Amino acid sequence: MGDDMAGDGLAVVSGGGTGIGRAIAARLAGEGRRVVTVGRRAAVLEQAREEIEREAGPGRIVPVAADLTDPAAVAAAADRIAGLGPVDALVNNAGAIVTPPEDDSLAALARSWRHDLDVNLLTAVLLTTALQGALRRPGGRLVVISSAAAQRGGAGPHSAGSYAAAKAALHGWAFGLARQLGPDGITVNVLAPGYIEETEIFGAGWSEEFHARKVADTLVGRAGTPADVADAVAYLVSPACGYVTGQVIGVNGGAVLGR
């Protein structure tokens, strides 16, 4: 996407089969882009493709199944993506909160943290590094999806803490990328969503009390939606966003004030 182009280029969205990633893919496809959705579950990606293309039209979604914690799988996926043309926008959305350690041992804690760092941090680092040479110069857009937990800290002693730490690590990494890629005309920004309903993280199993507490924590009196995040991404990957880079932007209804 050069600065003179509309939204008709190639975008890559990791974790694009469900929740926030699916909403981002749908939004960008609706703007006329081709969107590569990357995720571990081929069947989930295919279902999302069928649903999105009912609205956006055929040929807009290219599902690529890959485990983004596996360097060999990332390299293979990147080769396939690079063959589709220059990448105008890369949205690193893949990530999850993992289960707590299986026991109280340090070994179990180490396994839990390493897994969470792999899923929430290494996935973005590997995919971005593999595709860095394919980013359009000038005009490429790179967006990293973080979390308000990176700014507030995790709520639990184990897995939530590692999730917050992994997401916070994305910020420093993205700042370095912004410095590195800025001279090439590529912007790098971080989005930090707060409480977003209709996602696998905040899905079934959470109590009404939990929901009410999260909503009360906002200034606007409602939960966020995947579409709220997708709207922000659509701006950050647009030609209009050429002078915004190296920023952390909260999408949290005011639950975390600007910092």
Rank of each mutant, 00 (worst) to 15 (best):
29 A>M: 12
29 A>E: 12
29 A>I: 12
31 E>Y: 02
31 E>F: 03
33 R>H: 07
36 V>Y: 05
37 T>F: 01
37 T>L: 08
41 R>Y: 02
41 R>D: 15
44 V>Q: 05
45 L>A: 01
46 E>I: 00
48 A>C: 08
48 A>R: 02
48 A>S: 12
49 R>F: 02
50 E>C: 00
51 E>K: 01
51 E>C: 00
54 R>E: 15
55 E>W: 04
55 E>V: 13
55 E>D: 14
56 A>T: 10
56 A>R: 07
58 P>Q: 11
58 P>F: 03
58 P>V: 11
59 G>R: 09
60 R>P: 04
65 A>K: 06
67 D>M: 08
68 L>H: 04
68 L>F: 02
68 L>T: 05
69 T>C: 11
70 D>E: 12
70 D>W: 01
70 D>I: 03
70 D>L: 02
74 V>D: 11
75 A>L: 05
75 A>Q: 11
76 A>N: 05
76 A>K: 01
76 A>H: 05
79 D>I: 00
80 R>W: 01
81 I>Y: 03
81 I>M: 04
82 A>D: 04
82 A>P: 00
83 G>N: 12
83 G>T: 10
84 L>T: 05
85 G>W: 12
85 G>Q: 15
87 V>A: 06
88 D>I: 02
90 L>C: 05
92 N>L: 13
94 A>L: 10
95 G>S: 10
96 A>Q: 11
96 A>H: 08
97 I>T: 08
98 V>Y: 00
99 T>D: 15
102 E>P: 01
103 D>Q: 01
103 D>R: 02
104 D>T: 09
104 D>F: 08
106 L>G: 14
108 A>P: 10
110 A>P: 02
113 W>S: 07
113 W>V: 13
113 W>Q: 03
114 R>S: 15
115 H>Y: 12
115 H>P: 00
115 H>G: 12
117 L>Y: 14
118 D>R: 11
120 N>C: 14
121 L>W: 04
122 L>K: 13
122 L>T: 15
123 T>R: 06
123 T>E: 08
124 A>I: 04
124 A>M: 05
125 V>R: 10
125 V>L: 15
125 V>S: 14
126 L>F: 13
126 L>N: 05
126 L>A: 07
129 T>E: 12
